[in-house]
């Protein structure tokens, strides 16, 4: 049993997740479209974005999942669509689609040390390209960004390259800038995938 988990906490699925609803899906569809739009006029330099994206990538390369989760707000979405361009998450399955609760499920599963797809664990090195950053204020976020990535991965003597681009919705919080949505668009999202049991 996990020491941090008290029996009382188990009574309710932890953490409760009440924010995945029809309105969120509609908003995500719009955000998807916004990520795809090419609009050089809106791109700006905004403080704190580069460092947040760099830290997020670094935390995943280090498999520092605690600090990584701290970069996400409580009502976050981590989303890897199974199509290119991304289709609506309400109507299609995604390679990954997590609220914070399932994100923690995923992290905790790896943490058991018994996830054989990660034995040995993957080593990754992700290179984020220059992000496009723009202001987009609504009830859920303040800033959006999009950055291409190339990720080298090695596991059990086999090297792979994964590539694509990430779309981000960011929110200014009391703790600083945090991630509301990370959408990972693999360039081969609709092709058969190898062992992607780490986080993208």
């Amino acid at each position: 049993m996990n020491e941090q988990t008290s029996p009382e906490a188990k009574a309710a699925p932890q953490p409760a997740s009440t924010y995945i609803d029809a309105e969120l899906y509609t908003w995500l569809d719009a955000a998807s479209e916004d990520f795809r739009a090419f609009d050089p006029g809106r791109v700006a330099e905004i403080d704190g974005v580069h460092s947040l994206l760099a830290s997020e990538a670094r935390a995943l390369d280090d498999q520092a999942f605690g600090p990584w989760l701290d970069l996400y707000v409580a009502d976050c979405v981590y989303w890897v669509p199974s199509n290119w361009p991304a289709s609506s998450a309400a109507l299609t399955v995604s390679l990954e689609f997590h609220d914070r609760r399932r994100l923690i499920d995923r992290v905790d599963r790896l943490g058991t040390g018994l996830a054989y797809s990660q034995l040995p664990p993957s080593r990754t090195a992700r290179v984020l390209g220059m992000p496009e950053i723009w202001k987009h204020e609504d009830g859920r976020g303040h800033i959006r960004a999009r950055a291409p990535f190339v990720m080298g991965e090695t596991r059990a003597g086999e090297n792979r390259v994964l590539s694509g681009w990430n779309g981000y919705v960011l929110r200014q919080t009391d703790e600083g800038l945090r991630i509301v949505v990370k959408q990972v668009n693999l360039i081969d999202a609709d092709e058969p995938q190898g062992n992607n049991s780490f986080f993208l």
Binding site: S82, L91, T92, V93, D190, E191, Q193, G194
Partner: peptide, 8 residues
């Protein structure tokens, strides 16, 4: 009609 998980 709802996409798929594909594995190689």
């Amino acid at each position: 009609q709802s996409s798929a998980h594909r594995f190689h």
